[in-house]
Every structure is written in structure tokens, then in C-alpha cells.
Amino acid sequence: MRFASLALALTLPVTAFAQCGGSFADFKAGLKTEAVSMGIPAASADAFLSGVTQDPAVLKADQAQGVFQKPFIEFSRHLISSQRLDKGKQLAQQYDSVFDNIEATYGVDRTVLLAFWAFETDYGAFQGDFNTANALATLAHDCRRPDLFRPQVLAAMQLHAADDFDPRTTTGAWAGEIGMVQMLPMDIIENGVDADGDGHVSLKTSAPDALTSGGKMLQHLGWQAGQPWLQEVSVPASMDWSQSGLETVKSTADWQALGVEARNGTLADLPASLILPQGHKGPAFLAYPNFNVYFEWNQSFTYVLTAAYFATRLGGAPVYDAGNPDAGLDSNQMKQLQQRLSDKGYDVGKIDGILGSGTRTAVQAEQKRLGLPADAWPTPELLNQL
């Protein structure tokens, strides 16, 4: 689920970011005016917008992302199965030459793309049945994130003008992503590749096009060829847990001096952060620079970590050591915690029951203040002390 690409938005008129809400008919008229100012023919803009309607189901889906409330162990076990692993390995062989070309051209390991392909659409089997034009227009009209979604509507109109997008039949995810690896219209314009040579970038029906476009996009977002992204590690019980978290970056030598060891193989000679998704008694990973690129694809920490871990599994890594984490908080308790942290002045974002980066940072600070293991994993004990 791709939310982070805003590069092309910088090239659009500033007025685009102020136009949301109000009459939907007036909103569409404003879109047409802006599209024509960008060089899109008026007739093409009319054809695109004539049947576009608001979709209440899109807003409902936007507000109900409860799956991201699950902790890492539960979430990863839900998404990763032996069937998905076996299917990924089979597809790696089936499209071996395609992946060879992607790795040579863009430097993105096949397992990374296979993991996205698996999680986004179950290897293309479930690409979403929301009308994409309606979804994008609905989210652009809604005034919470017009700076993200209005440019995507205009990009879809550009694709339509180039005969690469049918507003009546193109379907995808509720947030407007299209195809096997779920790319937004702006991403398609910037990174779409006609890998099968048929003259069109067909992300819904052509695996070579979808995978190669995904590889190009990851390179564009900063992926470094030949570098790892995630590695499971073991950590000593005497560790200073406040050193964990993506905000702290150390060299491999520094982590080794603190007693961090690779569970399998050797540590890469790269800067890295120690990740403890369920605290110091649960799984532990070192996240290398490529791991941060995942957040340009999806901003959910749990999803990103699971996708990155699954890619390592496809590459032969063993099942992680789940350990025995302390009990976490249910959704209502998490909301209580977020509210108490917000009352103390921390920026935890929306009170939504999801353990995001802002909440993790605040939790770690309060754990340190209270003399608890500062591993950023919220527990009932922390909630009670607050």
C-alpha cells in the first residue's frame, strides 16, 4: 500500500493543494481547470471526469485499518505462510530472467520485490476492486490529505490522456494503487517500465512490467544495490535498551562492542539501527540503510518490518526467534496510553490505537524516566505507572 510518493507533486501548481471539500461538482470543475493548465486536452479531462463519483466505501476503508494494530509476531505469522514462501520461490524461477534484468539494472534483490508482490496482492491474485478514479477523487475531495491525493487524480488524468488509463474500468486498492505491486498513478508516470515490449505499461496484467516498474521505483527512492536491509540478531540481557530504535544509528563495530551478534552469518559493515518490535524479550533485528526505503512504500512500521523480514526468508533466512515478549496493550489500552502521552506533551499523532513511530518514541522516553527497560514496547505496567 503506497502512500509516500510526493516527488511529482512539487511540479504541480500550488493552488492544487488548497482545492478540496465543498460541492463535488465544483471540485471536479476545479480539477478540469487545473488539468487543462497542465496541458491535458479539455475533451480528455471531460471524458475522465464525466463519470467520476464519490465512493463512501473508500472513506470507510481509510478509517478502518485495524490490521495495523496487531503486534509484529501476530501480524507476521498472519501474513507469512509456507504456501506464500513456496509460491514466491516458484515465481522466482518462473521469472528468473526478469529478475536478473531488474537486479542488473536497478540493483533491487528479487526477494524484496517478491515480498511486496506477495503482501500487496497475493502475487497478483487480489488487486482490489475499487474504481481507481472514484477512489482517488474521493480521497482528494476529502480535506485530510489533498496534498497527496489531488496530484494523483491529475496523474491519472495524464495517463488517461495517453490512453493508458480507463476511468471506467481501472480498479485497484481503496487508496488508488494499481496493479500487482500496487503503484499510484504518479509512480507509474515516473517509474513505469514497459518490460514486455508491448508498447504499454500494464501493471495489472503483466508481471514483467509490474516487477520492473517496482524495481525502478525502489531505486528511485534510494535503494542501494548489493546492500542488505534487515538481519536478525541476538542481544545480551545487559543491553542498554534505550539504544534501540530507528533514531539511533551505530556502526557494526559499535554494535558488536555492545554484544550484538548475527543470529546467522555475519553482520554487514554498514551503519544500522537495533529494532525490538516487541521489546527486549522478543525478536531483535539490525536494520540497514535500505530498510528506510521501505517507509517510502508504506509508512506502517509493522508492515514494513514484516515485508523486509519476509524478503529475508525468501532468501533463505530461518524463522526468527520470537522469544517471550511481555504482554502488550489491546486497542483500547493503547488509545489510553496515547492520550496520556499526548497530555504530557508528546506528539503521538492520531489517537488510533496503533503503535506508530511517535508513540514508540514517547514510550521509550517515559520508560527511561520511570526506570523501566527503555525498549519502546508499551506494557500494562507502563500504562499503570502513567
Score class of each variant (00 low, 15 high):
Trp255Cys: 01
Glu232Gly: 06
Leu270Asn: 04
Val260Lys: 00
Gln158Cys: 09
Ala225Pro: 09
Leu218Phe: 11
Val249Asn: 10
Ser300Leu: 10
Ala18Met: 10
Ile354Trp: 06
Lys350Asn: 14
Asn264Val: 12
Ile275Glu: 01
Gly30Asn: 03
Phe99Arg: 00
Thr359Met: 02
Gly226Asn: 02
Asp55Pro: 03
Ser76Thr: 14
Leu314Cys: 03
Gly371Lys: 01
Asp46Ser: 06
Asp196Phe: 03
Gln219Arg: 15
Leu12Pro: 00
Ser300Arg: 08
Asp62Gly: 13
His78Gly: 14
Ser76Asp: 11
Ala307Glu: 01
Lys344Gly: 07
Ser97Thr: 15
Thr171Val: 14
Ala308Lys: 05
Pro380His: 03
Glu366Val: 04
Ser244Thr: 01
Thr53Glu: 10
Pro167Gly: 00
Leu211Tyr: 05
Ala365Gln: 12
Ala207Thr: 05
Tyr320Glu: 07
Ala268His: 02
Leu314Asp: 02
Gln336Thr: 15
Gly371Glu: 05
Leu154Val: 02
Pro71Thr: 04
Phe291Pro: 03
Leu6Lys: 11
Val98Leu: 05
Thr361His: 15
Ala237Ile: 12
Lys87Gly: 11
His200Glu: 05
Trp174Val: 06
Ser273Glu: 09
Ala162Pro: 06
Gly66Leu: 14
Ala327Pro: 13
Gln19Val: 12
Thr169Tyr: 09
Trp377Asp: 02
Gln243Leu: 15
Gly265Asp: 09
Asp164Gly: 12
Val235Phe: 08
Glu177Arg: 05
Ala64Pro: 06
Asp187Met: 12
Pro151Glu: 00
Lys281Trp: 10
His160Thr: 09
Asp198Tyr: 07
Thr33Gly: 14
Leu258His: 12
Leu113Asp: 07
Asp330Val: 06
Ala61Asn: 08
His220Gln: 10
Lys70Met: 15
Asp326Gly: 12
Lys204Val: 13
Ala156Glu: 03
Tyr106Lys: 01
Leu383Tyr: 11
Ala7Arg: 09
Glu247Leu: 13
Gly259Ile: 03
Asp109Ile: 06
Pro56Met: 02
Phe17Asn: 10
Ala327Trp: 12
Ser44Thr: 07
Leu230Met: 00
Pro13Leu: 00
Gln83Phe: 14
Asn292Phe: 15
Pro151Leu: 01
Tyr346Asn: 06
Leu203Glu: 01
Leu372Lys: 07
Ala195Val: 03
Val112Lys: 00
Leu370Tyr: 11
Pro146Thr: 01
Ala374Met: 01
Arg168Thr: 12
Ala9Phe: 05
Lys87Gln: 15
Ala161Pro: 08
Glu296Gln: 15
Glu120Met: 08
Val201Ala: 04
Leu267Gln: 00
Phe126Asn: 14
Gly51His: 09
Asp86Tyr: 13
Gly353Pro: 11
Arg145Asp: 09
Asp347Leu: 12
Met183Phe: 14
Ala268Phe: 02
Met183Pro: 00
Gln333Met: 13
Ser238Met: 07
Trp223Lys: 00
Asp209Cys: 06
Ala137Trp: 04
Asp96Lys: 14
Gly328Ser: 10
Ser251Lys: 09
Ser242Lys: 10
Pro373Asp: 00
Lys28Val: 12
Ser357Lys: 12
Asp194Tyr: 01
Thr11Gly: 13
Ala374Phe: 08
Asp347Met: 10
Val181Trp: 03
Val67Glu: 15
Thr248Glu: 11
Leu270Trp: 06
Ser244Gly: 06
Asp166Leu: 08
Gly265Leu: 07
Leu372Ser: 04
Leu136Ile: 07
Arg145Lys: 13
Gly222Val: 05
Met239Ala: 08
Ala16Met: 14
Glu177Met: 04
Asp240Pro: 02
